[in-house]
């Protein structure tokens, strides 16, 4: 299962790689990373319908997570549509509502609980 992680923080890449070390080594998950919404779109355009799950930060400079979500649901929604989980440091209800309205499958708040995340991913896989 290919997972695209979108976050402007570069250390997120290292963190995910290490957190999912075993799963990646087992070939359970394949991780890809983008530092911005724009980069994520470029990545998605080059590999259509390869990515199964997208984990995106909401607060990013430039294109925000919500805009990216809107793009995904309009431009990259070929069946099977990718599962999108939004991540934010501000776990307020409005953001959650907006994410749901735009078609997010889940809403996670930072700091991420990786045990919970792994379980969620396994149910999808």
């Amino acid at each position: 299962m290919k997972i695209l992680v979108v976050d402007d923080e570069p250390d997120v890449k290292d963190l995910f790689e290490q957190r999912f070390r075993r799963e990646v080594r087992n070939g359970e998950f394949e991780l890809a990373f983008a530092n911005s919404g724009e980069e994520a779109i470029t990545y998605l355009s080059s590999r259509p319908s390869e990515v199964v799950l997208i984990l995106s930060d909401i607060n990013m400079p430039g294109m925000s997570g919500f805009e990216l979500l809107r793009h995904i649901r309009t431009d990259f929604n070929a069946p099977p549509p990718p599962v999108v989980m939004m991540i934010t440091a501000y776990g307020d209800p409005e953001s959650q509502q907006q994410a749901a309205k735009l078609g997010a499958n889940d809403f996670l708040t930072k700091p991420l609980d990786f045990t919970v995340l792994k379980e969620k991913l396994r149910t999808i896989a």
Binding site: L15, R19, A89, K110, P111, L112, F114
Partner: peptide, 12 residues
Amino acid sequence: QNPLNFVNNFAE
């Protein structure tokens, strides 16, 4: 909060 999350995560 942001750096602290990283500190916690990388420690774990």
